[in-house]
């Protein structure tokens, strides 16, 4: 907000700022908790990734052996690729299907708040149970199969519906739908309607108006939604564990195994660090590429 009472020249010291000391005091409890709960654990994670687990003993000499292990073994490279591929597919599907829905609410619906509430109600159930619901639907004896069979449309149940990357993608796309709808909706809602009027006035039909005005202006929302979905889904545990089967395993499941079953924490840590960096890299390059593409459109 602009501070009307203070000359623009000293706007860097607006009147609402009092002496700074109480501010730091107010901030410190939160900072302490977050340093203890975030910075310290992450630092230790990196530390662990540089150590070695020798049987039960933890050897604390710094070594890059874990990273070498992770990066050199083909199954892990495949795991990274699969996780990123699955998340990319989820992101694309979710955003693509959510866009027309968000468009509808932003431009055509009249009781917008009602639609938004309706769109989020399904997600007030437990995430675990929602994933499980998909298991019920896609399974051998599940809703789709027993339904189709009882209708006589198929003789034997479809086996390809569950326990593979496909089921993971479908389940995650369902679970993350609201995270796509809301950011896209917000950015569509913000578009000044008079811009569309102006475009029409200048001769553009509905499709061209959409392509030349609406779509580019909603791009920040699309990119935001994509990042919001992509990053967390790469690290999802529950969905691949319940509906992924051996072919749909993702990063989190393997990391969990290293920690909870095998007990090789340094290796698990290295795996986690590499995944974070890989995902970060992919996200960064994708966003940069998207921004560059947007700039070129303009």
């Amino acid at each position: 907000m602009s501070d009307r009472s203070v000359p623009p020249a000293i706007a860097h010291a607006p009147r609402k700022w009092r002496a700074d000391a109480p501010g730091y005091a107010l901030l410190s409890p939160t900072l302490v908790v977050m340093v203890l709960g975030l910075a310290a654990p992450l630092a230790m994670l990196v530390l662990y990734s540089l150590w070695r687990q020798n049987g039960i003993a933890l050897q604390t000499q710094v070594t890059l052996g874990q990273y070498a292990s992770v990066l050199s073994r083909a199954p892990f490279r495949a795991l990274f690729l699969r996780s990123i591929a699955i998340s990319s597919a989820v992101t694309l599907a979710t955003v693509a299907f959510a866009y027309p829905m968000a468009y509808f609410v932003a431009f055509e619906a009249r009781a917008k708040f009602l639609w938004l509430v309706l769109l989020t109600i399904p997600f007030w159930t437990s995430y675990l149970l929602r994933v499980f619901a998909w298991k019920l639907i896609l399974g051998w004896n599940g809703v789709i199969n027993s339904g189709l069979m009882s209708l006589g449309l198929i003789k034997a149940p479809f086996g390809f519906l569950l326990y593979n990357p496909f089921s993971v993608i479908v389940t995650l796309a369902h679970a993350w739908a609201p995270f796509a709808i809301l950011p896209i909706y917000v950015s569509l809602e913000k578009i000044d309607r008079s811009l569309l009027d102006a475009a029409a006035d200048l001769g553009d039909g509905p499709l061209r108006r959409f392509l030349r005005v609406t779509l580019p202006l909603s791009l920040p929302g699309i990119i935001g939604a994509a990042v919001l979905i992509f990053v967390p889904t790469t690290g999802d545990y529950v969905t691949p564990a319940l509906v992924g089967g051996p072919r749909g395993t993702m990063l989190a499941n393997v990391i969990d195994v290293e920690f909870e079953r095998i007990g090789n924490w340094p290796f698990g840590a290295a795996l986690a660090v590499v995944s974070m960096m890989a995902v970060g890299l992919v996200t960064l390059s994708a966003v940069t590429a998207a921004r560059a593409a947007v700039a070129r459109i303009r």
């Binding site: 700022w17 009092r18 230790m44 990053v231 690290g235 986690a272 995944s275 974070m276």
Partner: peptide, 29 residues
């Protein structure tokens, strides 16, 4: 309310859990 140095850094840092996969946060803790 207060003009503190490094506001955006603090904000970014405190918001990290939103951008780190649960699994990483879980094992780190």
């Amino acid at each position: 309310r207060y003009r503190l140095k490094g506001t955006s850094t603090v904000l970014g840092f405190v918001s990290l859990p939103l951008f780190i996969p649960d699994i990483v946060l879980g094992i780190s803790l």
